[in-house]
Design a binder for these strands. Structure first.
Length: 279
DNA sequence: CTCCAGGCTTTAG
DNA sequence: CTAAAGCATGGA
């Protein structure tokens, strides 16, 4: 078991894990257990920091984006009035670096769905074909590999509760070879987005989530129903200055990326987390 | 019962 | 090109 710590100045596990970018976490008292790919970690609060106990410290240092300094990002974004409250609310958010294959599957499942049910579906899929693993925290199932997911057909997915998304996964999983994923990583963001949107069940919003959470691309801004509410509620006045913006989610996304550039994805997470907690 | 969830595909105009 | 129906499931 390997260990390292993350200072609590710009990191809060609740903000980071529960802001919508990630699904496989479990709160146990003051601690969190997280599963990513075939790895697992336990996060515990200690004095001025969090202790991370895991099977692979290098993996989780990258996962938690430990080499980025979020205080710089926040200082810059706080200059904008409407960002002050969302940043205060989600002050410990960090953008996670998640496995690409897993991120594609998870966000296809996420469409027109709620987070609780998404989590249940993912756990059932992992338990069905993922590799059973044991560490000192107990047993868990790794997220399935492509080979393991290829064992499932559309009716298997239906039986696991995926609804109409079953057909999307049955169609898309065979395309997600290592070759496709490697090629995808080498593309610039617009080209990568086109490749992703060629997959069944992947539209603009899901593609942007994959680019942000699975490929480290900050210059995207996924727009879902929640962000749409933010836009109409807080940015309606400003949007009037941009006559091309009507009510298309794609255009809302472009609006924010033009404004925030490579920090767009982070801005989106602050707004999403803030908006969801208000309901 | 209806409405909604980190939307997408398909079809119609 | 834009608009809207249809889609599975489970919780409120």
């Amino acid at each position: 078991m390997e260990k390292f710590t993350i200072k609590n100045t710009d990191f809060n596990p609740t903000h980071t894990l529960e802001c919508g970018q990630f699904f496989r976490y479990q709160k146990v008292g003051q601690d969190y257990l997280v599963i990513s790919g075939c790895h697992r970690a336990k996060i515990s609060p200690i004095k001025d920091a969090y202790l991370i106990e895991c099977d692979d410290a290098i993996y989780f240092k990258k996962f938690f984006d430990t080499k980025s300094d979020y205080s710089i990002y926040k200082r810059q974004l706080k200059k904008i009035d409407y960002m002050i409250e969302p940043i205060a609310h989600g002050s410990g958010i960090r953008l996670l670096c998640q496995p690409l294959f897993e991120t594609i599957i998870n966000f296809i499942i996420s469409q027109n769905n709620n987070i609780k049910r998404i989590q249940g579906i993912i756990e059932r899929i992992a338990a069905k074909v993922g590799t059973k693993t044991c560490d000192e925290f107990g047993e868990f199932y790794a997220f399935p590999t492509q080979t393991q997911l290829l064992k499932l057909n559309e009716s298997d997915y239906l039986a696991l509760g995926l609804g109409y998304r079953a057909a999307y996964l049955a169609d898309t999983v065979p395309h997600l070879t290592d070759e496709f994923l490697t090629n995808l990583q080498e593309q610039k963001t617009p080209e990568a987005r086109k490749m992703l949107m060629s997959l069944k069940g992947v539209g603009r919003k899901v593609a942007d989530c994959i680019l942000l959470f699975g490929m480290g691309r900050g210059n995207v801004f996924p727009v879902d129903v929640w962000v749409e509410r933010v836009f109409f509620q807080y940015f309606g006045v400003e949007a009037i200055k941009y006559p091309k913006i009507k009510n298309s989610r794609e255009k809302m996304s472009d609006f924010f990326v033009n404004k925030f550039g490579s920090l767009s994805g982070l801005v989106q997470q602050y707004l999403f987390y803030s908006m969801r907690e208000k309901v």
